[in-house]
Simulated scan of single mutants.
Amino acid sequence: MGVWQLLLVGLVMALGLVGAVVPGVPGRWLVWAALLWWSLAERTGVAWVLLVAATVLLLVDQVVVWLLPSEGGRGGGMTRRIAPWAGFGAVAGFLLLPVVGAVPGFVGGVYVAERRRLGGHGRAAAATRAVMREGGTGALVELLACLLVAAAWLVVVVKG
């Protein structure tokens, strides 16, 4: 697979990561489609194992999101105002403290967005809890699964 095609696959995965936190965009399916594209082009054992593992992870992720108690449904608490902050926080946390750092980063991003909107700590903390109850947790679970798939793909591509 050429460099340009790898960049396009990475771009589709990045779009999927954005879609994981933006309501109405099929994030996990964009990440999976990019991985499928890469696997079909590579045709190696590692590519197929990664595709199967990612498929299982993303299916389990979808079931978990469906089973989460949510007052507002998937993405109900995530607005277009909060999504960039939450996504940036999760990615930064994921990079600083691999895997587990995405959780406090996501919640911290939601808090920062609400703090900017509401001004005070108490009201921002209450709004953050409300966002997480109303669908933010589902967005976090989906983003974490997509980050794991994208990171695994990136490690395989870099290691060659």
Rank of each mutant, 00 (worst) to 15 (best):
V3L: 15
Q5D: 09
L6N: 11
L7R: 11
L8H: 02
L8A: 12
G10V: 01
G10C: 09
L15F: 14
L15H: 10
A20E: 09
G27Y: 04
G27F: 04
R28K: 13
W29C: 08
W29M: 14
L30D: 06
W32L: 15
A33G: 11
A34Y: 00
L35F: 03
L35H: 01
W37F: 13
L40N: 12
L40D: 10
E42T: 04
G45V: 05
W48Q: 12
L50Q: 02
L51N: 05
L51H: 07
A53D: 08
A54R: 05
L58K: 05
L59P: 09
L59D: 09
D61L: 09
V63S: 10
V64R: 08
V64S: 06
W66T: 13
L68S: 07
L68T: 06
S70V: 07
G75R: 02
G75H: 02
R81V: 11
A83G: 08
A83M: 08
P84K: 04
W85G: 08
W85F: 15
A86M: 06
G89R: 04
A90V: 09
V91K: 04
G93E: 03
L95S: 10
L95F: 10
V100C: 06
F106E: 03
V107Q: 03
G108F: 02
G108K: 02
Y111M: 04
V112D: 08
R115S: 09
R117I: 03
G120E: 15
H121I: 14
H121T: 15
R123F: 14
R123L: 15
A124V: 04
A125Y: 13
A125E: 14
A127C: 07
T128D: 12
R129M: 12
R129P: 06
A130E: 14
M132H: 01
R133F: 10
R133E: 14
E134R: 15
G136W: 02
T137N: 10
A139L: 05
V141D: 01
E142L: 12
E142V: 13
L144Y: 02
A145Q: 03
C146E: 02
L147G: 03
A150R: 00
A150E: 01
A150L: 02
W153M: 00
W153I: 00
L154G: 00
V156G: 00
G160T: 00
